[in-house]
């Protein structure tokens, strides 16, 4: 079966919000005749925005991991946990399964997002024609798993609200959790700014 034509070759474009297919118009201020949103062939400033948001996320990622995210206080002890030490504790407390889930959501997923988004942006900028289909898959993966990194943030929120037994026992959020929440939002925004159609535009070779 022959590959189907691309909209750009046929002089057509599709609304990014409602998917209506229209004839190509060379007007940056054009609006979709159906839903009224701005019409454009590719997401505007896609690569610049995606890079900027990714870089900002990478900067916030450092304090997010170095600073503790949660303080557990009781009569006899005070215990500050970072993301990593919280996972180790969960493992030792006898829930290795959950420890693996939290490790995946809080460590593996953000790292993968940085690596994949960086790779996609560099390969698009070099007009690479290498494994375009697989790169599009990688993009879908990032979109799909991105928001699960909020897991640890919500865990800290619930525990802080629950464990409020005056001096006997208390859980408090610490600055690390704020940085981490910001990292998740920034990486999500970076992935949303990226336009996967760019992977298929101006490829050097097939």
């Amino acid at each position: 079966m022959n590959a189907p034509p691309r909209a750009s070759e046929l002089g057509m474009m599709s609304c990014h919000v409602c998917r209506l297919v229209t004839a190509y118009v060379d007007d940056p201020h054009a609006h979709c005749p159906r839903c009224g949103n701005a019409l454009h062939v590719r997401k505007r400033g896609s690569i610049g925005r995606a890079w900027a948001l990714l870089a900002a996320a990478a900067i916030f990622y450092i304090p997010a991991n170095l600073f503790p995210i949660m303080r557990t206080q009781s009569l006899s002890s005070k215990d500050d946990n970072t993301i990593l030490s919280g996972i180790v504790e969960l493992w030792r407390a006898g829930s290795p399964g959950l420890a693996v889930i939290v490790f995946t959501a809080s460590i593996v997923v953000p790292m993968l997002k940085f690596i994949i988004m960086g790779y996609l942006l560099v390969s698009v900028q070099r007009s690479s024609g290498f494994v375009a289909k697989q790169r599009t898959r990688l993009y879908r993966f990032v979109e799909l798993v991105g928001y699960w990194s909020m897991l640890d943030v919500f865990v800290v929120a619930i525990l802080s609200a629950l464990v409020h037994f005056k001096i006997l026992s208390r859980v408090e959020p610490l600055p690390g959790v704020v940085y981490f929440g910001v990292v998740v939002v920034l990486t999500m925004l970076s992935a949303m700014s990226f336009d996967p159609r760019l992977i298929w535009d101006n490829r050097k070779s097939q």
């Binding site: 909020m150 943030v153 619930i158």
Partner: peptide, 25 residues
């Protein structure tokens, strides 16, 4: 348009899993 824009920012499923982790902790 609002439905399309809001969709990626709704995180009920993640909160559900977070609750389970908090309960175990």
């Amino acid at each position: 348009s609002a439905l399309v824009r809001v969709k990626p920012w709704s995180m009920i499923e993640v909160f559900m899993l977070g609750t389970l982790v908090a309960v175990v902790k």
